[in-house]
Write a protein that binds this DNA or RNA. Structure first.
Ligand SMILES: [Zn+2]
Ligand SMILES: [Zn+2]
Ligand SMILES: [Zn+2]
Ligand SMILES: [Zn+2]
Lengths: 129, 129
DNA sequence: CATGACGCTGAGAATCATTGTCAAATCCGC
DNA sequence: GCGGATTTGACAATGATTCTCAGCGTCATG
């Protein structure tokens, strides 16, 4: 059976940051925030914690245009995101028809083990041009 | 005005590979293929050529799960892809309703300069499990 | 509460795709 | 053919992420 992850100060600190943040943030940004708060956590540990959380589906991960991975604590269940390129502010969105469409396309072409990525990027109303 | 790009052996070679390939491939894969064909082109040059082609919208680019950028010569116009994770084989797909849905979602939330990414990944019929 | 086993941490090194550097080679209009 | 701007390529540099591994912390157990 799978070992339960241990309850460490560092992991709690990372989770706390994610709970405070509204939008997506990179591992390095989270590391910086922790440092500012004085709850310093090693960068490697931040990366590892986020990986674990992502595998456990407790956080969502996506890549921005620069290829950096961003993380966010999201609500459960499959959904997509409308993300501000500038500040990371995020709106969770659902598109039931898209889900069906994607599965249908894949099936029609004989693909299996299908998954899809769908993100909408833009500049939010409170960010300058 | 913009200078026209020069017609060099290297650029022609990269374009030729893209024309032969059916699916998406990374810069390094294309570099390897060129080496095998004896038409050696420097790796930096392959990267630069692909960048130029991508900016000119002559090729599409996307990232796989590992964060590598893959390129493919696609048909003109906005479309998305159904990509085999294993061999890169690709089917271009269109989803008019998705386009409208994405724009609507963004507008409703006051986002501007909107773009979206949508890719479907799976294993194609001719690839082993 | 003490103990031990084993997961967790973190500083630094290593990885690896991608980009930058710059002298030499190549285009191309004239 | 010339000459100047562009392009090339070997190599170094970057930068996000992962790996290493000795020391620490957690936690089930008695
Ligand atoms: Zn914003
Ligand atoms: Zn979906
Ligand atoms: Zn395949
Ligand atoms: Zn689209």
């Amino acid at each position: 059976m799978v070992e339960a992850p241990r309850n460490t100060r560092q992991r709690r600190a990372v989770v706390a940051i994610l709970e405070d943040l509204d939008g997506f943030a990179s591992a390095q940004e989270i590391h910086d925030i922790l440092k500012k708060r004085g709850e310093s956590v090693g960068l490697s540990t931040v990366y590892r914690s986020l990986q674990v959380l992502a595998e456990a589906a407790e956080v969502d991960a996506l890549r921005n245009d620069d290829g950096e991975v961003l993380y966010r604590q999201c609500s459960a269940g499959h959904h997509h995101h409308l993300v501000c390129r500038s500040c990371g502010r995020t709106v969770e969105v659902e598109g039931p028809t898209v889900e069906r469409w994607a599965d249908k396309i894949a099936a029609e072409n004989g693909f299996r083990d299908v998954a899809h990525t769908l993100e909408i990027f833009g500049t939010c109303a409170s960010c300058p041009s």
